[in-house]
Design a protein around this nucleic acid. Structure first.
Length: 551
RNA sequence: GCGCCUGUAGUUCAGUGGAUAGAACGUCGGCCUCCGGAGCCGAAAGUCGCAGGUUCAAAUCCUGCCAGGCGCACCA
């Protein structure tokens, strides 16, 4: 299935350019003014610079060979050097029928060619509940996964569980201390321990569930190990539940400890050594990052005490992904990993014979506000707004919409008060309202005994009002929006699109009646609004937001 | 100090080197006999952080400043 209008135009241009057609990249964009067409390109500029032919000559030549295309009603060359395209009503009608026939597959593509994509997001350390910062990563990662699978990739969502290392030790020690306190003993709470109340809850649960083991096991080391495993399991249970309520479901959960169990970590280190990417210094094993990254310091793979660093484990994890046959690996990380990303990339790509490299999407942190006041977020100190609280306060739809509505690079400010207060006028409701309104039109139609027939049989040419044309044109662009969001790995493009489509619908709705005495027009308009409904539902689904029939 | 990211309307954010920089919220003024008013129509609101440069064309690319966020571990 391919309903991309831009591709159609692009192909026609390439065809028109003929044999000598190794043209510069063709950019087709939506112009700002209606007189400039529905789509336009600046190709005459760039082509002229390349070939030396005059801009207007190129323009005129392209116009004359493109104007025969039946999906265009008009092609114009407009000085200083634009080609403006006008979509034909024939194409508008055909597209409307396609939406009704193909429904949620209208914007599906084979673009990804069934390639396997691994997407790793959130992957928060199991040392505490998810907080609001993780929510942004969850919203971006999950929507991206949805979008990529829509354009034809085989997507696997995975959560990487860091269940190894010093943080887990600190966590289990914190639980142990809380346990002692429950026994009535006064114990000094470690400076670097986890201070959140959830630790006390877990201690309480451990006291009940691990009663026997706790009383028989005397060796502190074994005891801490036992507590650690129990705690990680408990916290993961909560994380999983929070994510599910946020609309996120993973295909797999990968525990870091399995890298030791199947000895992959050792193989990775061997390979790095064999290739001469390592050296020993001060009793530690180092990665020669400077081989690939000038001006960067080398990094430790294996510490003096014999433990592997997170870096070493992470390289091994990525090799594991490659061994599972993934063509692309996408990691969605918070900006605190920004300096680390290049190291992982060079290590992984230089070990792989095909030089596949993780693609890393960095999202900037959310500044959380309550009115004018900033709220800090630290898992260690136990000061954070949990994802759970956000879900309870403002709900999944508003939260997901908010986190996915702007570019990952934006340092966005999130005012909880405002999010709650504005909720009635929030853009997400504006979009959902359009959907609910359409559903209610169909309820009325049903009551009056009107049924939507086979769209092929309905005379859609009776749709000619400006508001109707605008809607159809917007719908024609939907597949391209999805494709562009997939190519750029930027879900936020869909948000802007959904708002625009909803606005066009509301404008149409205010001015015209769908159900009227004119039977033919009624059916045509039902088709039109049903197409709007399908597309809105589709965008909302990609963003993980519900499309309610009633509000 | 070095690296990455950001700076666009009162606020939150869009904006693929192109044509007169957009939307939402907020503010002000209009619109309910009729499919849902969580809607529609209109108005006010901008030195695109500052200064240079490249280009026929710069919010967008380059350089330098200023301000903010995050990194620069034998943490993860």
């Amino acid at each position: 299935m391919n309903n991309s209008l831009k591709k159609l135009i692009e192909d026609s241009i390439i065809e028109a350019l003929g044999e000598q057609g190794n043209s510069p990249p063709i950019f087709i964009t939506q112009p700002k003014k209606r007189e400039w067409g529905d789509l336009s390109t600046n190709l005459p500029f760039s082509l002229s610079r390349k070939t030396g032919e005059s801009i207007s000559k190129i323009g005129e030549r392209l116009v004359s060979s493109l104007k025969k295309k039946n999906f265009l009603s008009r092609v114009e060359f407009t000085p200083p050097g634009f080609l403006n395209f006008f979509i034909s009503s024939q194409y508008l009608v055909r597209t409307l029928k396609n939406v009704l026939l193909q429904r949620e597959n209208f914007a599906s593509f084979s673009y990804g060619k069934g390639k396997k994509v691994h997407i790793d997001f959130v992957s928060a350390n199991p040392t505490g509940p998810l907080h609001i910062g993780h929510a942004r990563g969850a919203a971006i990662g999950d929507s991206l996964a949805n979008i990529l699978s829509k354009v034809g990739y085989k997507v696997e969502r995975e959560y990487y569980i860091c269940d190894v290392g010093g943080q887990i030790e600190r966590l289990s020690r914190s639980v142990w201390v809380r346990l002692q306190e429950l026994e009535g003993k006064r114990v000094f709470f470690p400076e670097d321990g986890y201070k959140g109340d959830y630790v006390i809850e877990i201690a309480r649960k451990a006291k009940k569930d691990l009663k026997e083991e706790l009383s028989t096991e005397k060796k502190e080391e074994r005891l801490l190990d036992l507590l650690g495993k129990f705690t990680v399991k408990e916290i993961l249970k909560e994380i999983k539940k929070d994510l599910e309520d946020f609309g996120v479901k993973y295909d797999s959960w990968f525990a870091e400890s399995t890298l030791y169990e199947n000895r992959e970590i050792f193989k990775t280190i061997d390979e790095l050594q064999k290739r001469g990417y390592t050296y020993e210094k001060d009793g530690a094993l180092w990665f020669k990052a400077s081989l690939f990254l000038k001006e960067e310091k080398d990094r430790v793979l294996k510490r003096k005490n014999g433990e592997y660093t997170y870096f070493a484990r992470d390289i091994s994890y990525h090799q594991n992904k490659l061994s599972r046959g993934f063509d692309r690996m996408i990691n969605v990380w918070g900006q605190d990993h920004i300096g680390y990303a290049p190291f992982l990339k060079v290590a992984v790509e230089n070990l792989d014979p095909f030089h596949r490299s993780p693609e890393i999407i960095i999202y900037q942190f959310v500044t959380l506000m309550r009115g004018k006041e900033k709220i800090s977020a630290s898992t260690r100190e136990g000061e954070f707004i949990s994802l759970r609280e956000v879900l309870n306060e403002i709900g999944k739809d508003v939260a997901r919409f908010f986190f996915v509505s702007c570019n990952a690079d934006t340092h966005l400010k999130f005012d909880l008060e405002l999010a709650k207060k504005q909720s009635a006028e929030n853009p997400v409701f504006y979009i959902q309202y359009a959907h609910a309104r359409i559903c209610s039109i169909f309820k009325k139609a049903k009551k009056e005994g009107i049924k939507l027939e086979d769209p092929e049989k309905i005379r859609l040419t009776s749709l000619g009002e400006p508001e109707e044309i605008k809607i159809m044109k917007k719908i024609c662009l939907y597949p391209d929006v999805v494709k562009e969001a997939a190519e750029a790995l930027e879900p936020h493009h869909l948000v802007g699109y959904a708002e625009e489509l909803a606005a066009l619908f509301h404008q149409f709705y205010t001015k015209h009646r769908v159900i009227s005495d004119d039977k033919i027009l009624t059916l045509a308009r039902l088709c039109l609004v049903e197409a709007v409904r399908i597309v809105i539902e589709d965008t909302l689904t990609l963003l993980g937001i519900s499309a309610p029939q009633m509000m």
